[in-house]
Nucleic acid binder design. Structure first.
Lengths: 243, 243
DNA sequence: CGGATGCTTGAAGCTGCTCAAGTGAAGTGG
DNA sequence: CCACTTCACTTGAGCAGCTTCAAGCATCCG
């Protein structure tokens, strides 16, 4: 679980590989860290083992201690309203960050539950804040990453119609889920219809119907959670409201 | 327009007063700046004169150069979709910040137009980034302010029904607009129905109708842009979906 | 095999939208 | 100072999209 103090070139190379597909790669690597700085960064990051579905990474009210980077699996962030109704904020996949919601109030304002067996990198915030005092470029990089995470959230929710939002969702999550390069546009959704519907602020029934409609139009293939994007060009037009 | 190099106690006192009702106050004052640091901060902030309605503070694509703090007046941030339809992101009032949208892509991704004659403080980002390298507490404060701005955006858009969102909007913007302490719950909206409707993702007609409904229920008084919150308790219930 | 869960499909109803007309307030020019 | 225009807002009627309730299927798991 804990990173070793080992700093041989071989191990540094292994870390580099491990971070390649990770958002943190942008934080820790390309800004010209030398061996010494990299060692310091490495000493604060912790890798978890595989966490099973249903576990929570954090819950509303938990003290803010760390930023998380998803290494494998899928995490859903959500809140419950006064009536106990679930409201899905987003899905976090391989290479994506979460936990920034807690920076301001110093405690988490959403829950994070594991949808698919998951391993994550844990970056204690105190440590990274301290480190970024020394390594100036890491500071600005941290700010930029935060900003990017939030702007992602904002680009959502825009579109008017339900069909439009569904198309945008599929186009957005497709590439993020794609594991194999061989068959483009084919992926398996890690979340339920209920979750997707909540995320898009529509009912699960409407989602089901409109997926069927998109299939009928020859734009996608859907069987349960298995999806194939057939006509991404037309799907893009719909996602942009051109229909 | 430019701040003077004057650093007499009298002028420092004046600055303190000027920033008292400003979000930047949190950034620049309470973290224990001494006279020297305060002078440095002051040297980078610029105060504009009064800017007339219809002027843009920045537009989509403008290079990211500064964070803005509204001193007086009202600024609307919005984007235009592919069809030229306006989409209002938010309203920025006295003491509130804007411009953080541009941190990540290094260029603004929304427009900011003045709705009511406006004076703003301009904080060049390069300068504040440089300054926060020396003054550590300013760094973390900057991150926290950014985080708070973004989390504000997220708490919006939640509620399901239109009435619910309108109630939440009124309760949110009321205190922010309130100028006089004498008559609580009374304020004058600086933006058109069209703007509010776009912000809440409903039509202007529906907004008009539901404001009339809330008036009929004895919860608010509305005449054009003049608003009075009559029963904030019940309004709160509606805003939370309890109806 | 039987139950549970998740997904699909159908029918009826409601919310909010669009189109359209009407009203009131503020500004313009004679 | 008053008719005229203009703009912002209101109000009405009909319609479309989405939701809700309810039943039917398929898939997974014991």
């Amino acid at each position: 679980m804990h990173a070793h103090a080992d700093t041989s070139p071989l191990v540094l190379g292994a870390l580099r590989r491990a971070c390649r597909f990770c958002s943190l790669f942008e934080l820790c690597w390309p800004m010209g860290l030398d061996g010494s700085d990299l060692r310091r960064l490495r000493s604060i990051v912790r890798h978890t083992g595989v966490l099973p579905c249903g576990n929570h990474l954090f819950r509303v009210g938990d003290r803010f201690t760390a930023i998380y980077a998803v290494h494998t699996g899928c995490i859903k962030s959500y809140t419950l309203d006064a009536g106990g109704h679930e409201f899905v904020h987003g899905f976090h996949l391989r290479g994506e960050l979460l936990g920034f919601d807690a920076v301001y109030p110093d405690q988490h304002c959403c829950n994070a539950v594991i949808l698919q067996p998951c391993s994550v990198c844990v970056i204690p915030y105190r440590d990274i804040a301290r480190l970024s005092l020394d390594i100036h470029s890491m500071h600005s990089q941290l700010v930029r990453l935060m900003s990017r995470e939030f702007s992602k959230q904002l680009t959502n929710r825009e579109g008017a119609g339900a069909t439009q939002r569904i198309a945008a969702f599929l186009l957005n999550i497709g590439p993020r889920l794609q594991q194999t390069e061989s068959s483009p546009g084919v992926f398996r959704l890690p979340m339920s219809r209920e979750d997707i519907a909540s995320y898009l602020s529509i009912s699960a029934e409407t989602l089901s119907r409109l997926l069927a409609k998109l299939h009928g139009m020859g734009l996608i293939d859907v069987c349960r959670r298995q999806v194939r994007l057939v006509d991404t060009a037309r799907l893009n037009l719909i996602a942009q409201g051109m229909n």
